[in-house]
């Protein structure tokens, strides 16, 4: 009996050692590559949301839920991640529906152009901090590149062991704690890098999206219908990567076929007041805080008008939470500006 206890203790000790080491070497995404922390911040958010945005960087850089709230009292969360592919969006939506049922789900259609996983680094940014669930398992299996394997997701030590030689203060500071880097999923960036040129598009080899992507979009649509959620499609304003007219036609046809609302904000840039000399931080791919505020203000008015969303500024409990969120938002803007 004594021997069995000893053996159990030894095994537990090693599990603890492996767990601690794995935690130590895994990226924290707190000071560098903060995009990797977004997915997990959602789990800590204390309220439900009327609008959930899913999609790639075009949502987390361009849509500020704080502005939506401040402008029209809309509660929203951006569950966007870097290069979020459509099957990842589907998985993240499924996961979201385990926590809440929003009134509107907005899918940013930019990723429809990608039918295959793009890079391991992007997979990691989306998946590393996601809670384990069937959805995560499915996303991993759909996203892995040939050189990846599932074990490195199950046991991140296998993937990140080499970081033991390059640990930084960040790894020790955030070993057992984390901080919030986004504001309901929106990542503030106040840098300005004007767009100096406009893209000359290369002819498309394939004008239609992959059938598999339509299948995923169908799944998103059906899932929303099952939960009585309105699915809205959007294309965020950007100059790069070029949004081809053929892509636009594909999405329009799909939206018409299934009676979905679709907003392409590229042609609305002037109406929104976007100026690509001041409102982008990378020459036209993403909007900076200025641009995101303009777009979010526009979206707030549009959604309020079209979907008659509730104004939560009149709800004392929500107001208290969001007032605190807004205070942190303003503080973060000031701090980022000073840095």
């Amino acid at each position: 009996m004594k021997r069995v206890v000893k053996i159990v203790l030894i095994i537990v000790g090693f599990i603890g050692l492996f767990w601690f080491t794995q935690r130590l070497v895994s990226p924290k995404y707190m000071m560098n590559l903060v995009e990797g922390s977004m997915i997990a911040e959602y789990y800590e958010d204390p309220t439900n949301h009327d609008v959930i945005f899913i999609g790639d960087c075009e949502v987390y850089a361009n849509i500020s839920p704080m502005v939506l709230y401040e402008t029209e009292g809309i509660t929203a969360y951006v569950r966007g991640t870097s290069q979020q592919l459509i099957w990842q969006s589907l998985g993240i939506l499924k996961e979201t529906l385990k926590y809440e049922t929003p009134k509107i789900v907005v899918y940013n259609v930019n990723a429809m152009r990608y039918a295959k996983p793009v890079s391991e680094a992007y997979n990691r940014l989306t998946l590393d901090k996601m809670k384990w669930s069937k959805e995560k398992w499915d996303i991993i299996n759909a996203s892995m590149l040939p050189e990846e394997n599932i074990f490195s997701y199950l046991f991140p030590l296998l993937r990140y062991h080499s970081r033991i030689t390059e640990l930084t203060n960040e790894d020790f500071t955030y070993l057992f704690q984390s901080k919030t880097n986004t504001h309901n999923g929106f990542l503030i960036n106040q840098k300005i890098k004007p767009a100096t040129s406009f893209p000359t598009p290369r002819p498309l080899a394939e004008t239609d999206f992959a059938q598999s992507n339509y299948a995923y979009l169908d799944e998103i649509r059906k899932l929303c219908a099952e939960h009585n959620i309105k699915l809205v499609l959007m294309k965020a304003p950007s100059l790069y990567p070029y949004w081809y007219p053929e892509y636009e036609d594909n999405i329009k046809s799909y939206a018409e076929k299934y009676d979905l609302d679709y907003y392409n904000f590229i042609p609305l840039s002037r109406t929104i007041g976007l100026d690509y000399n001041t409102d982008t931080y990378d020459g036209g791919t993403h909007l900076n805080l200025n641009g995101a505020t303009k777009l979010s203000t526009y979206v707030a008015h549009l959604f309020k008008e079209k979907y008659n969303l509730k104004d939560y500024r009149e709800n004392a409990k929500i107001k208290k939470i969001y007032d605190e969120k807004l205070r942190k938002y303003d503080e973060a803007i000031k701090n980022e500006k000073n840095n």
Binding site: I10, F18, E147, L158, H161, S162, I164
Partner: peptide, 17 residues
């Protein structure tokens, strides 16, 4: 065995590439 495995997993060069 546990320590040996630990050292190899932590200090070994393996994975992508």
């Amino acid at each position: 065995l546990g320590m040996a495995l630990f050292i190899i997993l932590l200090f070994g060069i393996y994975g992508i590439g």
